[in-house]
Each structure stands twice: as structure tokens, then as C-alpha cells.
Design a protein around this nucleic acid. Structure first.
Ligand SMILES: [Mn+2]
Ligand SMILES: [Mn+2]
Ligand SMILES: [Zn+2]
Ligand SMILES: [Zn+2]
Lengths: 146, 146
DNA sequence: CCTAGAATGAGAATCGTTCTCGTTAACTAT
DNA sequence: ATAGTTAACGAGAACGATTCTCATTCTAGG
């Protein structure tokens, strides 16, 4: 999704929740849209042009989370990383480096995603559940750490 | 696995790591073996008969984690919950109820697990990673909440 | 413009977790 | 069993990520 349609979608969602889509909130959405994976508050603050106080950044993230614009990702102990929700970015999975802790998005080929989907359906049904979503996280060594 | 064989396995592993299997460490392993799901330090401390100082409990958990006797499970923001490692309990996946938050183990059939394994290998290789582990979490409504 | 309510920023406070260091318990060799 | 050596423990301080407070600054509407 381009930047303009993204902002339009986000604004519509925030207005529904009676919150304003301010400069600071746009900046966070932009930073997350530019990121190849989930980012923590500390990681975001260095990528953003105008310096943002952490207290404001955390508040912004929790406002965005409340409106389901961003979703927290809890792969690293003691740190919450955020990414745009899948209704904005599309469904994807994650790779987590066991050495340096980096988290990167993995987009599956349609064939692989179908394979995962049908496997998840089969597994869940066998266990007696109705699946609405799934999360596949692959751990290992990233290119840097290999 | 019964309690006695469990302790024998854990002791062997700890001795390999030049670490003693003390009374306090046994108590934590017992508490986790009795738990129907991952438990945080704060949750464990109320479960255990003799009161354990949090500083000791945290140290015990990190010692056990270092020897791969327990693994952290990071489903809740800001809290680490621990469970016995899969070589003690068997490889399994998790189902997470989007309504009540319950986390339940899912054991795959050998066929399904092989399918997941090969899919993970293919996905990771295509993205340029060397996978050492994977985690598949299925979200949906549990039997209670359906 | 004015004004009321919302958002922001600086810093204090909180909370889970880790660290420090003096004391205690566990293994080893006698 | 005893003594010596070292690892483990416990109490509290310290730490880091996050949240809270509150005074100030924006912003949308009138
Ligand atoms: Mn992602
Ligand atoms: Mn998928
Ligand atoms: Zn890495
Ligand atoms: Zn449920």
C-alpha cells in the first residue's frame, strides 16, 4: 500500500475511535510502514527524523494499538515491538535470529501460504478448534550471524 | 514423564553444565511439571509450598533456561512465563483462544509435523535463513468460548 | 479569534527483572 | 564424619522498559 492510501485508511480507523490523526501519529505510522519488521519504541526513535520523546512515542503506540492500527509483537524478552496490523500490510510471518534477536518479515509464496493454511485447518480441526488466524515463527541464524 | 525420571533427566543435563541440582531447583521443576501451562515467576511463587525469594527464583529460572531445561514463553506483554523444554515434554504447538486467552498445547500427528518441518525448511531457505526451530501458534475460539 | 478538549513533553513513578555481596548449603578430600 | 572449597542462596539495591502525572501546547469548532 502506498503512503497516501495507508494514511487515509488509518485516519478513517482513528476517527471511528474518536482520536485525532496528528503529526506525531502519522510519523509513527510512516516509520512502521518503512520498517522491514516489527520495531520497538527505542528502535523507532532512532529512525525517525524529528526526535520524539519516548513518553510520547509510547503513548502514540498504545493509542494506535487500541484502534488496531498497530499490533505488538512479543518475540524478545522484555521488549515489545510493533508493526502495522495485517489488515493494512497483508498476512505474513516472522523470522527471529537466535543470536542477535533481529526480527524480519517473511512473505510466503501463495503456494506455501496455502500449504500452511490447509495444514493449520487440518491441525485445528483435529484438535477440535476453529482457527481464525495463525502465526508461524521461524527461529535460526540470520545472514549476519550465520 | 513421571517425576522420578524427569528429575533424573534434568539432573543429568545440569551436571553436564557443571551446575548443581539443588532443592530449590527441584522445587521449580516440580512446580512447572505440575502446571497445565507456562508460568511466570510471580505465578510460580504462589504455587510453591516453601516461599521462595523472587531473586532466587529468577536466578533459578535463568540457570534452568541456560541448560535448556526450561524455555520462556512470551505471550503477555512485560511478563515471561516458563515451561519445561520440549526434549522433556515433547514437541508441541500452541492454541491461543482469542476470547479467554487460554493457551493449550497441540500435539501434531507425525505426518503433520513432518509437513510443518519441511514447509519451514523450504520457507526459511527461500528467505536465506538457516532454521533451527519453529513455533506455530493457532488462534481462534476454544471449546469453551466457541 | 476564543475556547474547550485533546495531545504533547519532561520527568517522576512503576514494575518486572537483574545485580551485588555477605551468608549458607553442597560437594570433595581427608 | 569433618574441614575446606566453592557454588548457591537471600535481601536489598539497581536497572531498563514502560506508564503515569501534570503543566504546557495544539487543534477543531463556534
Ligand atoms: Mn511482521
Ligand atoms: Mn500464514
Ligand atoms: Zn542475527
Ligand atoms: Zn476460550
Amino acid at each position: 500500500m502506498g503512503a497516501a492510501p495507508l494514511h487515509r485508511e488509518v485516519e478513517r480507523r482513528l476517527v471511528e475511535h474518536d482520536v485525532r490523526y496528528t503529526r506525531g501519529r502519522r510519523a509513527v505510522v510512516d516509520a512502521l510502514a518503512d520498517s522491514p519488521g516489527p520495531r520497538s519504541a527505542a528502535e523507532l526513535v532512532v529512525t525517525m527524523d524529528d526526535p520524539v520523546p519516548l513518553s510520547s512515542l509510547y503513548r502514540t503506540l498504545s493509542v494506535l494499538e487500541e484502534s488496531d492500527v498497530v499490533v505488538p509483537h512479543l518475540a524478545t524478552k522484555g521488549i515489545a515491538r510493533y508493526e502495522l496490523a495485517e489488515w493494512l500490510t497483508g498476512h505474513h510471518h516472522h523470522f527471529i535470529c537466535t543470536s542477535c534477536g533481529a526480527v524480519e518479515d517473511i512473505e510466503l509464496t501463495p503456494t506455501d501460504e496455502e500449504a500452511v493454511d490447509s495444514l493449520v485447518d487440518r491441525i485445528a480441526e483435529r484438535a477440535g478448534y476453529v482457527p481464525t488466524n495463525h502465526e508461524l515463527e521461524i527461529a535460526g541464524l540470520c545472514k549476519e550471524c550465520a
